[in-house]
């Protein structure tokens, strides 16, 4: 069984037919080839699939694609092209706040969400804000540095 699905992804109107069982991050990756969002655990723990749905950060693995009917979805690809997270991206590169890069798209969404709600967070608040996003490589310190730098700019 497949259902019709219409939504906006990165500002582009999308129509597709999808199986109800397909979660949103698989839809983005498999159907739309937006492979920047990653399926790291598929049970809502790692945060690698963090994306924006109607302006709010969600776990792409804990939402079915069919639930995004009519929604406005933004992924790292669109956020890059729009420049919405350019300052964070620049700081992540400059401070080496990534190694393998697998967590980075989700981490950037978490960081942008944090800074939107709290433009001048303390280091502790930054750590809390990204505490749902797993990074095995960096030790988090450089990520906190990068977000802190952007918050002070």
């Amino acid at each position: 069984m497949k259902l019709d699905l219409s939504l906006t992804v990165n500002g582009e109107a999308i129509s597709a037919r999808v199986e109800p069982r397909m979660h949103l991050v698989d839809f983005l990756r498999e159907v739309l080839d937006l492979t920047g969002s990653h399926a790291g655990c598929e049970h809502g723990v790692c945060g690698a699939c963090s994306i924006l749905v109607n302006g709010e950060m969600v776990r792409g693995c804990l939402m079915l694609a069919v639930q995004a009917e009519g929604a406005e979805v933004w992924t790292v690809e669109g956020l890059t092209e729009s420049g919405a997270i350019a300052a964070l991206q620049e700081a992540f590169v400059a401070r080496n706040a990534l190694q393998c890069g697998y967590c980075t798209p989700g981490m950037l969404v978490a960081a942008a969400t944090l800074l939107k709600a709290n433009p001048s967070p303390t280091r502790e608040e930054i750590r809390e804000g990204i505490s749902g996003n797993y990074c095995r490589c960096t030790g988090y310190h450089a990520i906190v540095d990068a977000i802190e730098e952007v918050s002070r700019a």
Binding site: S50, M57, V58, R59, L62, M63, A110, G132
Partner: peptide, 9 residues
Amino acid sequence: IAHAAIRNR
């Protein structure tokens, strides 16, 4: 309760 992304849904 969990993390911000979870609390949003």
